[in-house]
Design a protein around this nucleic acid. Structure first.
Lengths: 273, 273
DNA sequence: CATTTTCTGGAATATATATTCCATTTTGAC
DNA sequence: GTCAAAATGGAATATATATTCCAGAAAATG
């Protein structure tokens, strides 16, 4: 099986990995998938550690190494140790370099956004009100149907919530205005609306939130500032601010909040069943 | 002398190293000097290799380790391997621990996702290939029309790209499969496709990428692992991996990459006008 | 459904590597 | 220069780790 010559560069390794993944039995593919995500760990880990992390037996991992064209784990690891040098420089120096390379370059820009994202996440962890989060989870667990709305810049957050909830078998509907169709009358008693909006606040989102409130449905708001109009509706507000680069903002913090919310709700609901 | 507790951080290690160097016999100092210059090699080398490189016997190197406060080379190496990469103790096991300890509160979960997001961003800055990013920006600046596709979990990223590009007056179309309508024949010569997909890779995304390639359009791929099928298409690949919590992943890193890309393209195009 | 082939897990073994030990050499003090 | 103390190198041993092997399970084939 391991007729081909062993990949001796990172690129060759990558190419072979793609081939291998295509049609391989379950365990081998598990190895390939794990390795694809964690290739850098090979240099400093034992087969035992790698196989455990990949969720397979050491012997299965050995077979994977052979499939990749190596005589065994040791030979594969050797390749990584030899190429290990400057491939993954440490974060701080890398970031400085990225920034130094001129304001307008894409890498400098990336460095800025990475920094902004990191500090936004820090703020999120530090300042989100734990009690509001608890309440939001409680309400969403009790809901018969969860409605989601988020337009313009907030749309990716709403879409991701929709994806995650569906994956966890939690009934949820995304009001995405596709075809300019309205589904507001699907909002019934016992339902909860999650409304997501950042400045400048989309009127349609606010309006749906008002509609839900008038029908005595709870509203959970994911928004960006204390003066957001969503606060005025008596919504359970989760406030999350995102640092900006120039006038642009990534969505790291709101998305992280969203997935935490979804997973918390999903796992609690599935336990109750 | 080696009664002190073993240094468990790089700084502590360094401090101890200085002490040790001061008044030590010849061979031990040789070890200290070599290690001072090549500390990073410890994680991936054996005692034999280290001692040979330092010009001493393995046994001398062992004595050096003990002088440093460790029980032996293995313990010292362990410290370096653990600090080698900050995302180590992987999140799956941490979540298991968290669950085992009964702390299943949404706040704890949020903390996990925040941590995962922060380290993903760190990885993004540390490992993204600057040249690929440059090439991607060049191609996208030259494109007459930019096509975007990303389905399932990748959809929020595609949607956000679409939003940002439009805001910056860059002509772009999101192939979102709404109404199950296809728009592939809108892809013309001189256009570029940005295909976004994460495991498990969506067949429709791959297919559109193949279609674009067959029409001689460049494809920029935002994907998550080395074995992504998008690599096989000769696409300009931007690989970004996201740490997971349990089996869930937020999108902080891919989204940050996406907005950097969009802003870089947008501002360069607007300059050129 | 029976039969062959492939795949899998775990235990047994081989190998590499770390670690200790001790005879010999060097160093420093008187 | 002699003696004691410290340092050194290399061989012997212990330990960790990789690797192989095989019996049983699962899939594929006819």
């Amino acid at each position: 099986m391991p007729q081909k010559t062993a990949p001796d560069s990172f690129d060759a390794f990558q190419a072979r990995l793609v081939e291998v993944t295509e049609n391989s039995p379950k365990r081998l593919r598990q190895c390939a998938d794990y390795v694809a995500r964690n290739a850098d760990k090979i240099a400093v880990s034992t087969v035992a550690e790698m196989s455990r992390a990949a969720g397979v037996q050491p012997s299965a991992f050995m077979r994977f190494c052979q499939l990749m064209g190596y005589s065994g784990y040791s030979q594969m690891q050797k390749m990584f140790r030899e190429n290990y040098d400057r491939r993954w420089p440490d974060y701080t120096t890398r970031l400085e370099k990225l920034r130094a390379s001129g304001d307008e370059s894409p890498t400098a820009l990336l460095a800025e956004f990475v920094e902004a994202g990191r500090s936004s996440l820090e703020m999120l962890a530090g300042s989100l009100d734990a009690r509001s989060l608890e309440t939001a989870v409680d309400k969403l667990c009790a809901a018969s149907l969860i409605h989601l709305i988020g337009l313009s810049r907030a749309f990716p957050v709403a879409a991701y919530l929709s994806y995650t909830l569906e994956k966890m078998d939690v009934p949820a509907i995304l009001h995405d205005r596709g075809g300019n169709l309205d589904h507001r009358h699907a909002i019934g008693p016992g339902d909860v609306l999650v409304a997501i909006s950042f400045a400048p606040y989309t009127e349609e989102t606010l309006e749906l939130a008002r509609f839900a409130r008038d029908r005595n449905c709870d509203v959970v708001a994911i928004t960006d500032a204390l003066n957001s109009p969503l606060h005025g509706l008596g919504a359970i507000a989760l406030t999350v601010s995102e640092a900006d680069v120039g006038s642009f903002r990534a969505l790291s913090a709101p998305l992280t909040l969203a997935i935490s919310l979804a997973v918390a709700v999903g796992s609690r609901r599935n336990e109750q069943k």
